[in-house]
Design a protein around this nucleic acid. Structure first.
Lengths: 339, 339
DNA sequence: CTGTTAGCGCCTTCAA
DNA sequence: TTGAAGGCGCTAACAG
């Protein structure tokens, strides 16, 4: 490994001068800068990040915490996509990106502890938000910079988070269904204690009551993500004496299962049943029919959260904020207009 | 931040003793060990990773390089899944995991350079393998530890890589189709210069010729991943005077598009067309029909590559090896038995 | 504009 | 079994 003092020697200056050249300190003459840079290039010098981190007490690295991989939800294309967003800004700002996942909540917690205490990272992005989350509490307690993608359970004012207006989105997409003549509309959502689900569902409920259509309890179903997910939910719905004509599904991935089960039962979407959902993951254009879904701009969620976090880490006094990424409904072929 | 000398003071020993306790050095008496550990706990001491890295010249971190995000392929659930595998071993061994992606090949290259020269990581896993890849060449040249998931283009003997026996898999799955009575079998693959595609296709070809069924060139189609992917390929196939009765698709994701297009054209799978593919991504059980596909054990690919890499980093002399993760055909409902 | 000095937190000889 | 001393590579005052 070739160090700062190697290039210092080679150039005949002191190592602090070299250090200043690296930092592009304006008080160094252009002449020496050039000289030093030349030597750096020739010798193939690259700064040792650990040495630097040690002294400046910053790592220029952020940690991204994934939900526990027990959650099959991890398979959601949501994650690669948000990672793409995050990493585009870390790349631009020369930050690095440490990924942390764990099988259990426990594992995740210890990883976060290591990250924080060991100064692995300057801040952390939480890719999930659960009620009363240990990790989040820890971070708050330690006053360690973090941002949440999604909505925090409590202390909303003191936590920076990046989210969509899921309530509005839920409302809008439901109203769209209504506008197409649907009245018996069901809701299929993921786990009840996920905020996304709750918000989207509230939006759905609001739209329904607003239009004087009473919320039928049997029409609101919660299910696991993959596989069994859609299936059970659909079966429940189909067993009802009065079937819905449309359904709002809280995640494209669940829609896939729903679609599949529906077809299995010989029902055609959208003819026999209309479907709308959320996320606009690439899958939603491949399914048949292609899904009408809310594009929540996953990539942008990543970008915003990374930016917000980095700001927080460079300026610890940065006030907490709430960043709402706009959504956009993408109309495709899964909805039928009732006459 | 509380340091080693803080706990030294608190315990009345020297900092070197504390350091040895951390390393669990056997030459320290149990008594002092206990005493020191107690103090560490009370004070909430955690080792500073950068300081340690600086002196031991190792980071206990590995870098994972994703394919350029220009490739829509990134959306493949393959990635979260392999990351899960990798991170399960990094977690176990207390390594950390730095993720690097980039929009362009160029970006990726500079990131890798930073990682390597700046001692961010001890080694690198390449999640893609392209012909004549700059990154790979760089790594080889620098003799920096790395492993490839997939098959390297050249220097196969000197590079450690983790792969499936895609040729055998391609052959087996094709033979299965043949055994079901199919003779006109097409192949739809991703980009031609991806090794996976090539190998799987070779397997397909072998199976066909083995059985004296000549390879029809119009039956071998290459396409982009998402969206348009399946569509074009299918249209090409359907335009043929003699249509195939079965098709081997090189990736579940492409199968989705294929399925969708087929249905659009009013063809029923498997009745009118049988389909088999590769990866056994969770999607393949949700589609209708559920796909018969080769389970390549993505998670395990991740585990193996991480293990191999870590071994390489701790023992630089570790010989290169080729690790083949077994595959397994998962039979579901996308194939029709012709009588 | 540049050099000297000190020190970040930790590990590792070398002595004792 | 433990301490003292030095150094990893870099930056940041403080001088000049």
């Amino acid at each position: 490994m070739i160090t700062i003092s190697d290039v210092a020697k080679a150039t005949g200056v002191s190592s602090s001068t070299v250090s200043r050249v690296i930092a592009d300190n304006p008080r160094i003459s252009l002449a020496t800068k050039k000289k030093v840079r030349k030597a750096m290039k020739e010798l193939g010098y690259y700064p040792n990040i650990n040495a630097r981190n040690l002294v400046v007490k910053s790592t220029k690295a952020i940690g991204v915490i994934m939900p526990s991989s027990a959650d099959k939800a991890l398979q959601n294309p949501f994650f690669p996509e948000i990672l793409r967003g995050i990493s585009s800004v870390t790349h631009d700002r020369q930050y690095s990106l440490t990924l942390s996942s764990g099988k259990t909540e426990e594992e995740i917690f210890t990883e976060v502890q290591r990250m924080v205490y060991g100064s692995y990272v300057d801040g952390v992005i939480l890719l999930y938000s659960r009620v009363n989350d240990r990790v989040m509490n820890f971070l708050r307690e330690k006053k360690f910079p973090f941002v949440i993608v999604g909505k925090p359970y409590e202390h909303t004012k003191e936590i920076t988070y990046v989210d969509n207006d899921n309530l509005a989105a839920g409302k809008e997409i439901t109203e769209y269904l209504i506008a197409q003549g649907h009245e018996r509309i069901a809701f299929i959502g993921g786990s009840k204690d996920l905020f996304v689900t709750m918000d989207r569902e509230s939006g759905y409920e609001e739209a329904m009551t607003n239009l004087g259509i009473s919320n039928v309890e049997e029409y609101q179903i919660h299910t696991e993500f993959l596989k069994s997910g859609g299936r059970e939910a659909v079966e429940q719905l189909l067993s009802l004496k009065v079937r819905p004509t449309g359904v709002v599904v809280s995640d494209d991935l669940i829609s896939l299962g729903v679609l599949s089960t529906l077809e299995e039962y010989g029902l055609h979407v959208p003819r026999d049943m209309s479907l709308v959902s959320f996320n606009n993951v690439y899958l939603s254009e491949i399914t048949r029919p292609a899904l009408t879904t809310v594009d929540i701009q996953i990539y942008e969620l990543g970008v915003q959260s990374a930016k917000a976090l980095i700001e927080k880490t460079v300026n610890k006094e940065e006030p907490s904020k709430r960043i709402i990424v706009p959504y956009k409904v993408v109309y495709r072929d899964s909805v039928n207009k009732l006459t």
